[in-house]
Structures are given as structure tokens and as C-alpha cells.
């Protein structure tokens, strides 16, 4: 599948790919908007599943299979469940409720639109016509000490392996730090959430 998509993306006008992306994007945007506007807490969580799932598909389109899988496992497998637990434990109204929003909707709208305009303008100005080429994946680049890219041979098949090499190589310290972070968060969350 990945090679197929890669081949498709290299053609100059990629109708099926773009149509698929358009459908996906519209779906994700609608779902995201529903998350922040729906009057039902549980529905919001379910719409969020759609966005997160859509994200995983986007990662697949971008040929990041490992991240896509992680996204499915962590987000849809764990975080959404956490949210549902949260909803249950705080006895949120499971049906429609009218007071989920506060009284600054218009501020939120203005700020959101403003941010969208600024980001959209900047991004379009800078990368208006750049095409995806995935070249970086096919020739995994390893940086030497001076930071210049050194090309080494290899195929796309070893990508997950290369990812692992990166994490346990240059990113070893952040990796260990995250492990401590998760332990600490666990301990603290237990203390805060349990009844004394």
C-alpha cells in the first residue's frame, strides 16, 4: 500500500489521491467542529474518534506506518477510553445539555479565525507549491556531527528499523525522560484521584 501511494504521489496530477484526501479532510474538519460544538458530551468523544482515526489515515498517506499504528493504539485504544471514563466518573450528562459552552463563543470564533488566517497565510507564502516527494524516506539521511546530511544506501523497508535506531541513538535521553515522565504522572495522578 505504501509503495502504491508513493507511486501515485509522484505523478504530476494525482486525481484519486487528491479526491481521497479531500474526502478525508472534509470528514476530519467536520468531525473536529462537531467535537467543539456538539451539545452531547459522549458524542463529542465519538466525533473525536473520527478525527483521531482520520489522523492515522493521514499518517498512512504520508507513509508513516509506525506512527499511524501508534496513533491507533495510544489514542483510540487508551486516550479515548480515558476520556469516556472521565465523562462517567464526573457524572457528565449523557444526553443533550445546553450549557456546555460558556458565553465567549464569539471571542473563540474570532481568535480561531484569526489564527487560521495567520497560519494559512504564512504557510501558503512559504510552501505554496512544494510537492511531497518522500525522497528523504528512500535515502535515509543520517546527520554527522557537523549537521550536514550524509547519504547512505538503503531501502524503504528498513524504515521502522531506522526509526528505532534514531530513538535509541540520538533521542535516547528524551526517550528515558518520557519513561520517567509517565511514571511520575502515574504516581501523581493516583494520589490526586484517589479518595483519602
Amino acid at each position: 500500500m505504501t509503495s502504491l501511494l508513493a507511486a501515485a504521489s509522484s505523478t504530476s496530477f494525482d486525481v484519486p489521491g487528491n479526491v481521497a484526501f479531500a474526502v478525508l479532510a472534509v470528514l476530519m474538519v467536520v468531525a473536529a467542529i462537531r467535537v467543539v460544538t456538539t451539545r452531547n458530551v459522549v458524542h463529542a468523544a465519538l466525533w473525536l474518534v473520527v478525527v483521531l482515526g482520520g489522523n492515522a489515515v493521514v499518517y498512512l498517506i504520508l507513509q508513516a506506518e509506525f506512527v499511524a499504528l501508534t496513533q491507533l493504539l495510544v489514542y483510540i485504544g487508551a486516550i479515548i477510553v480515558l476520556f469516556l471514563f472521565g465523562i462517567m466518573l464526573t457524572r457528565a450528562p449523557l444526553g443533550r445539555s445546553e450549557d456546555l459552552d460558556n458565553n465567549q463563543r464569539w471571542i473563540g470564533a474570532v481568535v480561531g479565525v484569526l489564527l487560521l488566517l495567520v497560519i494559512g497565510y504564512s504557510v501558503t507564502q512559504s510552501w505554496g507549491s512544494d510537492r511531497l516527494d518522500f525522497a528523504a524516506y528512500d535515502l535515509p539521511q543520517v546527520s554527522d556531527v557537523a549537521g550536514t546530511a550524509v547519504e547512505v544506501g538503503g531501502s524503504g523497508n528498513g524504515r521502522t528499523q531506522a526509526l528505532a535506531n534514531e530513538i535509541f541513538g540520538d533521542y535516547l535521553i528524551p526517550f528515558e525522560v518520557v519513561s520517567v515522565l509517565l511514571t511520575g504522572a502515574l504516581i501523581g495522578a493516583i494520589v490526586l484521584a484517589r479518595r483519602d
Binding site: 528524551p174 525522560v177 511520575g184 504522572a185 501523581g188 490526586l192 483519602d196
Partner: peptide
């Protein structure tokens, strides 16, 4: 490194969030 800075920032912040609410009652 961006990743290192971000992760370190989270590691120092997240426990602090919880410590701020430590007087549970």
C-alpha cells in the same frame, strides 16, 4: 535539541501541575 527541550519541559511541568493541587481537600 527541540525534542529534548520539549520533553524536559513536560517532565518539569507535569509534576508541578500536580504539586500545585497537592492540598487535595
Amino acid at each position: 535539541d527541540l525534542v529534548g527541550i520539549f520533553v524536559a519541559l513536560e517532565l518539569l511541568s507535569i509534576p508541578a501541575y500536580m504539586l500545585a493541587g497537592w492540598r487535595k481537600g
